[in-house]
Design a protein around this nucleic acid. Structure first.
Lengths: 188, 188
DNA sequence: ATAAAATGAGATAAAATTGTCTCAAAATAG
DNA sequence: CTATTTTGAGACAATTTTATCTCATTTTAT
């Protein structure tokens, strides 16, 4: 990728974000659909991303980077685990579409460097859950794997509910956190 | 649909079920992919379902009928709401792929009779949640809509975890029910 | 304000998917 | 067992999606 003007960078990100949103709602969306959703022309889409695959790969990296940044700012190793997990969940809700994209796109085999980067995202979350189990705030009779599934799917539920307009953006983090934590915390 | 032999009926259902499973995992799967997943030839797939749309429509009806049957057998109007909801969740887990299909396919506008049928599925669940709130076992500070989102997404999480082989089929209902109920039940 | 760059609509080409068909082999029915 | 039906591989046709390109218009940079 060349050095572009700030405007073109901004455009590029806007397209990626529009693609992310639409693909979360409709994974089968065509490039014409994506261009329309981004309010740009099809030719412009191709100018920014030469192939569908190029778009998807770049979106994967963007999603990964965004999510990594969120995780880095959440201090998952501080405070009791439920607090830290709540913090993480709240920060991730606006990025639910990208989270969904990362979970569901099937190109990991083709791009092995993406696998490594993806593990750097999962590791701190797994460590947080294991910390919660060690400190007794998370149940030990439920596997960390299942807890991660619950996080993944609850996060996307919250994102989709916002998108659908059925819950308010400002309520989503609280609802999600309560729904999630209620299922995995020990009863005190 | 003509009257076919029992064998052809069984074949047809097997194809629908294979399609359902693959589409839950990979919504962008092509008809060639679906045929392969069902272990049949592409020509055979087309003999059973003349177009992709025909396949999807019939899958929608099958999913609806299956889910409706499950709901009809679950006595949602009996026992405390958490018990009834647990019963429902447990019964729905094996049909998570079909539940996901119903939630995500975008053909409701084109087939209005499917909309009505879909509402006959949603209404008893909504009624159950509202009963739970009335009897004080479900929280009233969380909207029934959000509870339904939680049910939907938790169900699919359980189905996918089974599919991925990360939880045992026999554990999935319990894990799902605990995860779900912990988030929506009142604390007693 | 002007020149350069970017854009979108739409036409066109290439590739992929959907859909159709043939025929030898496999499965089924009786 | 035999006759009939069904099937799958693969060739081919039709349709859709992806990708390429043109050019007048719009936007941006200076």
């Amino acid at each position: 990728m060349d050095t572009d003007s700030p405007l073109k960078d901004e455009r590029r990100l806007h397209i990626l974000d529009a693609a992310s949103e639409l693909l979360a709602i409709r994974p089968t969306a065509s490039l014409a659909d994506i261009a329309q959703h981004a309010h740009i022309g099809k030719a412009t889409l191709h100018r920014y991303f030469s192939t569908r695959e190029a778009l998807l790969i770049e979106l994967a990296y963007r999603a990964l980077n965004l999510v990594s940044d969120v995780i880095a700012t959440c201090r998952l190793d501080q405070d009791p685990a439920p607090v830290a997990l709540g913090r993480l969940a709240e920060a991730l809700v606006p990025h639910g579409d990208k989270w969904y994209f990362l979970l569901n796109e099937h190109f990991w085999d083709v791009h092995p460097d993406l696998i490594q980067a993806e593990e750097t995202v999962q590791a701190p979350i797994l460590a947080l859950i294991e910390r919660g189990q060690a400190e007794g705030t998370f149940r030990r009779d439920i596997s960390p794997t299942w807890m991660i599934y619950m996080l993944d799917f609850t996060l996307f539920a919250a994102w989709q509910a916002i998108f659908d307009g059925t819950i308010a953006r400002r309520d989503a983090p609280r609802l999600m956190i309560e729904g999630l934590l209620g299922g995995i915390m020990t009863k005190t």
